[in-house]
Amino acid sequence: MITGAAAAVLLTGGGAAALTLTGQDGGTAAASATASTATAEITRSDLVDTEAVDGTLGYSDRRALPNHARGTVTRTREEGGVVRRGGWLYRVDGRPVVLMYGDIPVYRTLSTSTDGKDVRQLERNLKALGYDPGTVDEDFSWLTEQAVREWQDDAGLEETGTVDAAQIAVAAGPVRIAEITAETGTAAGQSVVAVTSTRRTVHVDLAADGQQFAKVGARVTVDLPGGGSVKGRISEVGAVAEPVEENGRPTGESTIDLEITLDGAKKLGRLDQAPVTVNLRTDEHENVLSVPVEALLALSEGGYGVRLADGRVVAVETGLFAAGRVEVSGDGLAEGMKVEVPQL
């Protein structure tokens, strides 16, 4: 606590208002301040400092879906639509290309003369769709062929009893139609649609000199267009820095890719490729006392203090500055105490 005659300067954003502090044992301060005062509580909480960077809200795992059906594109789905197992992605010559789940692409014709892990994948999908391929295994049996024919009949495909890449496309789960790359009436080329997963994500091209703030699992807050925010976590951090170019020439700067997985999907609507602001945590002090920054007094003998509501001035040690508050410690400070702040 400050005793005896002392002088202080009140820190404000637009300039300083002089306060002369007089009296013994922290007695009453004589007011020469140019601004009236209010009070604010000393609080105890985690104090977090952040750095705002630009990001883009979208969907993860965007890719052009390979097409193996030959003919004319006769129907496509609306962009933004979600396709699940057994649903059609697009139609070529009136025949659907159907989505099935797995991780093995269709690279050969599956029939009673084949066996392998891709057969097991097909049978697993048929069973999930309500057809009976017999025991789900790596053997394409006559029961598998019968299940395939039933599925083909229901799906509007030619009942051949065999399956190839012109009939199905494989993805890990549901996909979202991100872009139609071959319009109705045109020849079906290497791809007809680009798809993404249904998982919302934010992509950030983070300046390489800020990579110390990017740790997998670190929490972030994302400010959305039009107001509101959602929480998220960093899910991927690029390992390779990519040079930044401007007008085709390198700028000497570089970025790393940052992917952020979001909570609270209901708040996101159907926004895609929307600009957002990502608040990365750069420092965090847990369970500390803090006051509004404007409560700080610069003491004439050096250092800082705060004026309590009863008029006493207490010297403080400052720590982290974040979100308009500052960490403070000092003798006689406690959670819930009131400190003076300028009232403009």
Rank of each mutant, 00 (worst) to 15 (best):
Q212K: 11
F213E: 00
F213G: 00
A214P: 05
A214V: 04
V216A: 15
G217S: 01
T221D: 14
D223W: 00
L224T: 09
P225D: 09
G226P: 09
G226S: 09
G227H: 06
G227S: 07
G228D: 06
G228A: 07
S229E: 11
V230S: 05
V230P: 06
V237K: 02
V237E: 02
V237W: 04
V237H: 02
G238D: 03
G238Q: 02
G238L: 03
A239M: 10
A239T: 13
V240H: 02
V240D: 08
V240I: 08
E242Q: 14
E242G: 00
E246C: 04
R249L: 10
P250H: 11
P250C: 11
T251A: 11
T251V: 10
D257H: 12
D257M: 09
E259Q: 14
T261K: 10
L262W: 10
D263E: 10
G264I: 00
K266H: 13
L268C: 13
L268Q: 13
G269T: 12
G269E: 12
D272G: 06
Q273P: 00
V276E: 03
V278S: 03
V278I: 03
N279L: 11
T282R: 06
D283W: 01
E284Q: 11
N287C: 02
V288N: 03
S290L: 09
V291L: 01
A295H: 08
A298C: 02
S300T: 12
E301V: 03
G303R: 01
Y304F: 05
Y304Q: 02
Y304K: 01
Y304H: 02
L308M: 14
L308P: 09
A309H: 06
D310P: 02
G311W: 09
R312I: 01
R312W: 00
V313P: 10
V316M: 13
E317S: 15
T318G: 05
G319I: 06
F321V: 07
A322P: 03
A322I: 04
A323Q: 12
V326E: 07
V326C: 07
E327F: 07
D331P: 06
G332N: 12
G332S: 11
L333S: 03
